[in-house]
Amino acid sequence: MLLSCTDVRKTFGDHVVLDNLGLEVAEHEVVALIGASGSGKSTLLRCVNLLTGIDDGTIHLDGEEITDPKVNPDLVRQKIGLVFQSYNLFPHMTVLDNITLAPTRVHGKSATEARELAMQWLDRVGLADKAKAFPDGLSGGQQQRVAIVRALVNSPRLLLLDEVTSALDPELVGEVLSMIRDLKAEGMTMVLATHEMGFAKQVADRVVFLDAGRVLEQGPPAQVLGDPVEPRTRQFLARIIEAGRL
């Protein structure tokens, strides 16, 4: 297993957000996290990336326990890419500088090397002409693709995507989704939190339904989304269908 979360517990005060949560992700697997707002999807991704500490349990990446307090979190994060719902590009830097920051400062690449790599990626996602632009001069879909490229240039072992399309209008969603589909074809291991059931169906190998901080149900997309076992899952999907999002 590339990623194993075992009995992970996370609380904010009295509020138990992740409750004995278990999740395994194999190499090259794409896992979609679904669940109601507040069910803990973002929190789980932030815990895996060690942006927040957990209150119990263990998380292993590549066989190493990353929740061991002796582990340097900076080294762990270098192996994990995280893309945020709100892009979080650095507004004072050009697109190119956003992308080359980590390769040059963290991964010891030379400026030329980093620039070439960045330009290859930008070219690939059709944004080479935006290299010198600042983030606020880009559309939402363009910004989100830059954010994904910024995570990818570091060749992460695992890519975490947190509702990367929810701030985009339908036309822009397509750009980002086709990019993720390409990554899947190349064998990138991904965990993505999403409200787009159609997308989960198309791209995920496995859908995991989170409810009140636990994995309530998981399996192939067709089964979880088409014929769920748990009443809570049915309820959730019924509401999604009502909202016209399936």
Partner: peptide, 13 residues
Amino acid sequence: PSQIAAARSLGLS
């Protein structure tokens, strides 16, 4: 704070 989160998630100290 999301700016720091983004920077840290890239592996920056």
